[in-house]
């Protein structure tokens, strides 16, 4: 009997071995320098929200995200972030609509293959701050403001070391960026959400 239990023990222990490490918030290592943070695309999402024929909100996302962060908890106000989005990776769960979004009616991805955001100012504390920066969309660059917060940070060796997460939201007018087609069907105001996790 004892022998059977001993033999079965690894079988029961197996699922525990595959469990995610405890996501307890551990303080960042002192060695985590300000530079060198990169967006983890697997755990980051860029969403957009647009009103369809004044009736409901349609949500979509961009699956191609990259970017970098200069972040030092000790001097949060001097943080800088750049985000690059590949508009051809737009995902709305409807391929014909995605093809249309890639066309000159909307993102014109063959002419403007990149959407980028580069922060210029961070105001407030890490809990709640305003992130100002230049958004380049459809070949037009304009300054926009995100309402943002730091969601948390961790330092888990099994997940590759220090991580920090931010959540930011804003609303832009797409016509400001020269995207003026079909304003009757799809609203001018577009909500943008950045849910970013960055690794060091």
């Amino acid at each position: 009997m004892k022998l059977k239990l001993l033999l079965l023990a690894p079988v029961f222990a197996l699922p525990l071995a595959f469990r995610s490490p405890t996501p307890a918030a551990a303080p960042l290592r002192a060695s985590a320098s300000a530079a060198g943070w990169k967006i983890d695309p697997v755990h980051s999402t860029v969403l957009f929200k647009i009103k369809h024929v004044g009736t409901s909100y349609t949500l979509g996302r961009f699956n191609g995200i990259s970017g970098a962060l200069e972040y030092d908890p000790a001097s949060f106000g001097s943080s800088k972030i750049t985000v690059e989005i590949d508009p051809s990776t737009v995902d709305t769960n409807c391929k014909p609509r995605e093809d249309h979004l890639r066309s000159p009616d909307f993102f014109s991805v063959k002419e403007f293959p990149k959407i980028s955001f580069a922060s210029t100012k961070v105001e407030g504390s890490a809990d709640k701050f305003t992130l100002t920066g230049d958004l380049t969309l459809h070949g037009v660059t304009k300054s926009i403001h995100f309402s943002a917060e730091k969601v948390g940070e961790s330092d888990i060796k099994e997940m590759g070391g220090p991580r920090v997460g931010f959540f930011a939201q804003t609303t832009i007018k797409r016509s400001d960026f020269g995207m003026k087609n079909m304003l009757e069907g799809a609203s001018d105001e577009v909500g943008l959400t950045l849910a970013l996790e960055l690794t060091h």
Binding site: P96, D99, H100, S103, P104, D105, N181, M182
Partner: peptide, 9 residues
């Protein structure tokens, strides 16, 4: 152009 999904054109 409609077939090519470019309504503006």
């Amino acid at each position: 152009c409609i077939c090519g999904r470019v309504a503006s054109l």
